[in-house]
Write a protein that binds this DNA or RNA. Structure first.
Lengths: 340, 340
DNA sequence: CTTGTTATTGGGAACGTTCCCAATACGAGT
DNA sequence: ACTCGTATTGGGAACGTTCCCAATAACAAG
């Protein structure tokens, strides 16, 4: 059942007022004589008193709860970020509620309503929407994970998508690939900024390669998206002459594509090279193991938490942006080709 | 910032009392005339009022929050269970806070303290401890995921570990394996019940096989555990004559062992057969893909939520136990051997 | 001893909503 | 019109803790 001992009873047993008990148990504290302190602590122990944090939170208008909105907690990428954010926030005595948007603005809006109910002190999110004003209108300190707009009124953390994409393309170039396809998505930073797409096009331009619109795929960042990519690609006329590598929007898609290529009689890591994005644990276990760009999830999660904690301290300071570099992780999914 | 419009202001604008406003907005409701209902809803809309659920929860001694304790949310097994439990609980307007025990009783005890703070209506957990009395002493409705004691005072769900283990052993037997090692752990159901170990020993006895104590490994259910298993196994004298298959305590360990065996010059799925437990997504992507016993995580998560919701309805009903069968998932990690 | 400063204490009010119950209104039947 | 039963309403109190501020106590300096 709920706590049934209140500070009134503790005060009675300790022979002090409820205000003195409150000063002993609350974070803010206040002056209490050693004698009173002893008496209160003894009474607390004897009665098995536990502070009712709902009552305290109600009075203080501060609940110690943070809402973290991710696309899907069952996705290893997001569960690792979540874990890191949780650990950091728990150090400061915050508890974390996780919401799953499934990339649906409708679901997201429902969580915004929950966020407005007085239940949370702050919000961390990888938003579906890029309507920053709507997020600000919730009225909570908020931190964005991932890039949504060039200029943001929100504290933001994530991986530098441009750099990560460029890193992968350069590696493919260095290993001799000249016919590179890209498989991205219509979610997240691609939805509004088309960051990966822009880097890809700039890369081709810089290398003097013609843009082949057929080689820019838009599929879901899922296993199904990987299968769809392979289906569409092998159906392209003369596809083997037109593609020697694919840069995938994330590992889940890339891993699925590895298997789908093999099933289509195409040997991944030889006939076709693949690079993923994220470096989820499974990327190391495919055959061939996936070359990918690691996004430092623990750093991102912890940074999101730090930005939010910092925002609690100073609500009025200018928005911060903390992007991490990706890190190329070389495994077996990229062939070494001679320079053409 | 926090909600600043209260029902007092809504009542004033609508020309009714706060009690009438409360009757309109609360779950419990009560009689309200159509005219008053209209007036209140109009005022709510005009003022942009949002119900303060902390205040309501404080008054009602019911917060709509559930604490879910798992070993590690970043583990795909637990993140999927979490997702399923969340979805079910959200249908009934509960929010879920996830705690990570990391198999530490100390961490777990800290969460028990949090659970007692008045913040949660219920608890779902895969406990580190088997001290059911300690869990009951928290004073919250609680549901256990996984088996902890033969006779439990707690609602319990999970996979039938005996059956799942037996299923895997029978499959190894049918495929001609006669020298089967087992790699389990000292956590979870193995810690207190040694379920897998007992099934293994009974199996050997039934088949008239001698128990070779060297073939029962105790390692962590982690990637490191998988590597450790392989290190220890290949160091056994004449190990190739003594082992033709390994039943692993979970997929994470088994996947890691696949790679470690290959690195040790042993071909998984040929020289050595492996069976995992769980069927996490990565199990389908190894080479060879892992044969394993699927634990129906979505069913378990949803059942845990259902059991808790049911307990909320009737706190005094007898504890329930709902174990799911495992399901054998055949892939490429088990060789077909001739009958010896 | 007097004065000034700081430490300590305790009672009342606040936080926003729900619940309780007495009072009133309304509708149906006689 | 009167009676009875049901619907509706509203004011006060409760929930457990924190904060505010006046009052008191303690201590130091002159």
């Amino acid at each position: 059942m709920k706590p049934t001992i209140s500070i009134i009873e503790v005060a009675r047993l300790a022979g002090v007022s409820k205000s003195t008990v409150s000063r002993v148990i609350s974070d803010r504290g206040g002056s209490v004589s050693p004698k009173a302190l002893d008496a209160v602590n003894s009474a607390i122990q004897e009665l098995g008193y536990t502070r009712n944090t709902i009552a305290a939170g109600f009075r203080m208008q501060r609940t110690g709860m943070v809402l973290l909105l991710v696309p899907d907690i069952a996705n290893p990428f997001w569960s690792e970020i979540t874990r890191a954010a949780q650990d950091r926030l728990e150090e400061e005595d915050y508890s974390v509620v996780v919401g799953n948007t499934d990339w649906s603005e409708q679901r997201e809006t429902r969580y915004y309503k929950l966020a407005r109910s007085g239940r949370f002190d702050g919000l961390i999110l990888n938003s579906v929407t890029d309507d920053i004003a709507a997020i600000l209108a919730i009225g909570l300190p908020a931190v964005m994970i991932g890039e949504r707009a060039e200029s943001q009124a929100l504290d933001t953390t994530g991986t530098d998508t441009r750099m990560a994409t460029r890193m992968a393309l350069d590696y493919l170039w260095e290993t001799g690939h000249r016919r590179i396809a890209i498989a991205t998505t219509e979610h997240g930073s691609e939805r509004f900024l088309s960051l990966r797409r822009k880097v890809y096009e700039d890369f081709l331009l810089e290398k003097g390669l013609a843009l082949d619109a057929d080689l820019a795929f838009s599929v879901k960042l899922s296993e199904e998206g990987g299968r769809e990519l392979v289906r569409e690609l092998v159906e392209l006329p003369r596809w083997r002459d037109r593609v020697d590598a694919v840069l995938c929007g994330n590992d889940i898609m890339a891993i699925s594509a590895i298997n789908a290529f093999r099933e289509a009689g195409v040997e991944p890591g030889k006939d076709i090279s693949l690079v993923g994005m994220d470096d989820i644990p499974a990327a190391a276990h495919t055959f061939p193991a996936l070359t990918t760009v690691r996004k430092p999830r623990s750093l991102m999660g912890a940074m999101a938490a730090d930005l939010l904690l910092s925002r609690f301290e100073d609500p009025a300071k200018p928005p911060e942006r903390r992007l991490f570099p990706g890190e190329l992780v070389l495994r077996g999914s990229v062939a070494k080709r001679g320079r053409a």
